[in-house]
């Protein structure tokens, strides 16, 4: 039995080591602050007020350069807006439709079924307007950075490797600008210094100056506050299923524990007389 225990222990450690090492090296440099997000952990949920504020930051600041291709207006209901509010938000934007009877494409107000319109027609146009750097699409940004999406076990397994959660990385990036690059760092023309960006030299200027937006709910728009809100919004955009997933997960695991316990009792009973 000793062998079994040792082997199990080695197998599990092996799994964890390999799991961690396989996701390493996506982000280097100093570790951003790890925030106690409302969506962290087994029972995590999104803070609706923060989502709505984050959406406001996205609309007013990010959306000028970044696309959000995978999000449709109808999805905004998850932020706590009702049918009519979603329609009103959609109607503020124009999307291309067509061709009409004359064979021409035309613009019309967006409907809830439409996806978020991109600020640039294509990546070439985006690069041309942004000094050669294409602003990445933000629909999956928190999954595509850091440890790749929400992970309930990051504290025990991923932290020792210095590997931040995607949300922590995005928040760190937005708040991690330095006015001037440290002495000796050769910052190229037109680039900005960021503590957490790999290589530190980033093409995006610090996007969230104090009071960059005026919050509808009266919250004071500090850089840190806006960064937290927009990060929450972007985590939602990456993982809209998160709340449902976690709630279902708790039920499924409780069920499996009960079923496994019953199977174990039955196994004991059936095997009781085997010698």
């Amino acid at each position: 039995m000793q062998i079994i225990k040792t082997l199990t222990a080695i197998a599990i450690t092996g799994t964890l080591i390999i799991g961690v090492s396989s996701t390493q090296a996506a982000v280097s440099g100093p570790k951003p602050e790890s925030i106690n997000w409302s969506f962290n952990g087994v029972f995590g949920t999104y803070d609706r007020a923060s989502l709505q504020r984050g959406f406001q930051v996205f609309q007013n600041v990010c959306a000028g350069c970044h696309s959000l291709n995978l999000v449709a207006f109808r999805n905004l209901k998850a932020l706590g807006y009702n049918e009519n509010e979603v329609k009103a938000i959609a109607a503020e934007y124009e999307v291309q439709d067509g061709p009409n009877e004359d064979g021409d494409m035309f613009d019309r107000p967006a409907t809830p079924a439409d996806h978020w319109p991109a600020p640039f027609a294509n990546s070439r146009a985006a690069a041309a307007m942004n000094g050669g750097a294409v602003p990445p699409d933000l629909s999956l940004i928190t999954k595509a950075r850091g440890s790749g999406g929400d992970s309930a076990i990051r504290v025990s397994m991923l932290q020792p490797s210095g590997f931040p959660l995607g949300a922590d990385y995005v928040h760190g990036l937005l708040t991690g600008y330095l006015e001037e690059a440290p002495v000796g760092f050769d910052l190229p023309e037109g680039k900005y210094y960021n503590k957490y960006y790999p290589g530190h030299s980033i093409a995006m200027s610090s996007p969230l100056g104090e009071d960059a937006v005026e919050y509808n709910d009266g919250t004071k728009a500090t850089t840190d506050q806006m960064s937290r809100d927009v990060t929450t919004f972007l985590v939602w955009a990456s993982e809209p299923e998160l709340e449902h997933r976690k709630q279902l997960g708790v039920k499924v695991i409780l069920f499996l524990i009960v079923l496994t316990a019953m199977l174990y009792a039955l196994k004991r009973r059936i095997w009781a007389n085997v010698h």
Binding site: T23, A26, G148, S151
Partner: peptide, 26 residues
């Protein structure tokens, strides 16, 4: 199987991208 499914479910619901690489979401 019960034990394995419990272990499996933990990853599906609480750490679904644990084994994956973030770059594959680009």
């Amino acid at each position: 199987l019960g034990l394995l499914l419990t272990f499996f479910a933990f990853f599906i619901f609480f750490a679904p991208n644990y084994f994956g690489h973030p770059d594959n979401y680009i």
